[in-house]
Design a protein around this nucleic acid. Structure first.
Length: 438
RNA sequence: GACCCCAUCGUCCAGCGGUCAGGACACCAGGUUUUCAUCCUGGAAACACGGGUUCGAUUCCCGUUGGGGUCGCCA
């Protein structure tokens, strides 16, 4: 029997990380067993299931690299089939028509639960039992003729040949009903694995109001799909060998449902960011360049590839997410960069510094070569002349040419900036922040 | 309320009767970087509680407490 898993979300316009993780586990499990990963769009709620919402869903999955192995099934297209089976259930005596609760809305079709305990072995939660006394009949077709979730869900799983149902544990109660349905239909009951939920930073279940819980928001923030995938996979699962940063292949190879946690996991943005940094530094250069470039372009900066490459070279791994690129490197590409006033006060206006700074600027302007080693030598000589610590001039220069007190190694940075810009910036900064030029 | 699920450092995981309870993120200290980030070293930090079972419980059982889920002609 080849494994067939499915991800069956109802498209609501935004894809929640809890759902995405369910998709990830389904994908991982199918891949690990050489099976197939399927998608079923449960779009029977016409109000929310707009074409727009479906597109968002498909995009999110493509972004995370989880294309289904077969064309997606759209549940809305299966109405007739669902209804036909409901009729069959009535004919077989497993269901009956009734004006449930005497609502006056007309007759709906109600499935009759068996009068015996229902037991199943959940791959992550273990043996789950529901006593016959706690089982209740439920509606499978509404009085307006539309099939209800439980019926549609089970029938489509049969149709798709799903062998393993991996979903959120908010479905465990439904499972008893679904099992009864599978049996009434004479179908093979699939294996179930119920995933614990993901809770927010407050330890509470995510609600619609929780901000950063949608896949699109992570993408917009510059998080790498591989990092989000990796992080989410580790929420409730671990390979057991201590590995954390992994490629898809490594995860596929190690994934087992048996190692899935049965307790809820709290989402930790800080660790995701760390994970992102880890994946970023493992990225092929070309992809890294493209990611940084995209952020620069978003901010109206268009350096050449060569320029960007030189800048990234001195920046090293200081940039943790692509979306931070422009903010941290603007001064390399634009004369209009912001100044950190606290840094100006502390470094540039330090007594005695502006005068030496001006002198240093003149010496650099006339330096025989504008490379890091030469610049450093000149700075040290200039500092030594009046017994000042080199650090004073180093810090002051950094603030003058970059506007900030944090950044890459000063001399390498100056070399990238070049003689003209460095000279002009030092003069300009002194004029603007110290006044007079002296 | 009924039924069900869950419980190891702040967080995510490891542990599947005998461990100095391990790792990662975060945090703190020191070193490297004359800045910041990286990197290196060190540190603080947990078995919710009470009963059993056992020679021995973080681990098995029961209860308590605390979280959570489900109780729709939503999905």
């Amino acid at each position: 029997m080849t494994v067939r898993t499915r991800f069956a979300p109802s498209p609501t316009g935004h894809v929640h990380i809890g759902n995405m993780r369910a998709a990830i586990f389904n994908w991982l499990f199918a891949r690990h067993h050489g099976g197939r990963f399927l998608l079923r769009v449960e779009d029977t709620d016409r109000e929310r299931s707009t074409p727009e919402a479906c597109r968002t869903l498909l995009e999110a999955m493509a972004w995370l690299g989880m294309e289904p192995d077969e064309p997606p099934m759209y549940q809305s297209s299966r109405r007739q089939a669902h209804r036909a089976v409901a009729e069959r259930l009535v004919a077989m005596g497993h269901a009956h028509r009734e004006d449930k609760g005497s609502t006056g809305r007309g007759e709906c079709i109600v499935f009759s639960m068996p009068r015996e305990d229902i037991v199943f072995d959940d791959v992550v939660k273990g043996r789950l039992v529901k006593a016959a006394a706690d089982l209740q009949d439920f509606v499978i077709v509404r009085s307006d003729g539309t099939p209800v979730f439980h019926l549609a869900n089970v029938l489509d799983d049969i149709e798709m040949g799903v062998t393993h149902i991996i979903r959120g544990d908010d479905h465990v109660e439904n499972t008893f009903r679904h099992i009864a349905l599978f049996r009434a239909l004479g179908a093979q009951v699939p294996r179930y694995a119920h995933l614990p939920m993901i809770v927010n930073a407050q330890g509470k279940p995510y609600s619609k109001r929780d901000g950063d819980a949608y896949v699109g928001q992570f993408r917009d923030r510059g998080i790498l799909p591989d990092a989000l995938f990796n992080y989410l996979a580790l929420l409730g699962w671990s390979p057991g060998d201590g590995r954390e940063v992994m490629t898809r292949e490594e995860m596929v190879e190690r994934f087992t449902l048996e190692r899935v946690q049965s307790s809820p996991a709290q989402f930790d943005l800080t660790k995701l960011l760390w994970m992102n940094g880890e994946h970023m530094r493992r990225l092929p250069v070309e992809q890294r360049l493209a990611g940084h470039m995209a952020d620069l372009e978003r901010h109206g900066l268009r350096p050449s590839k060569g320029e960007l490459r030189r800048v990234l070279d001195v920046m090293q791994d200081r940039i943790k997410v692509f979306s931070d690129t422009a903010g941290q490197t603007r001064y390399f590409f634009d004369e209009d960069y912001p100044f950190d006033e606290a840094a100006v006060r502390k470094r540039l206006r330090k007594p005695g510094v502006p005068e030496r700074m001006a002198e240093l600027g003149r010496r650099w302007a006339a330096a025989p070569a504008f490379d890091a080693a030469t610049l450093e030598r000149i700075l040290k000589e200039t500092a030594a002349e009046d017994g000042r610590p080199p650090a004073d001039l180093i810090h002051a220069t950094r603030v003058a040419v970059s506007g900030t007190s944090a950044g890459p190694g000063l001399f390498a940075m100056l070399e990238v900036l070049g003689r003209e810009r460095v000279t002009a910036r030092i003069e300009r900064a002194l004029r603007r922040w110290v006044g007079g030029g002296g």
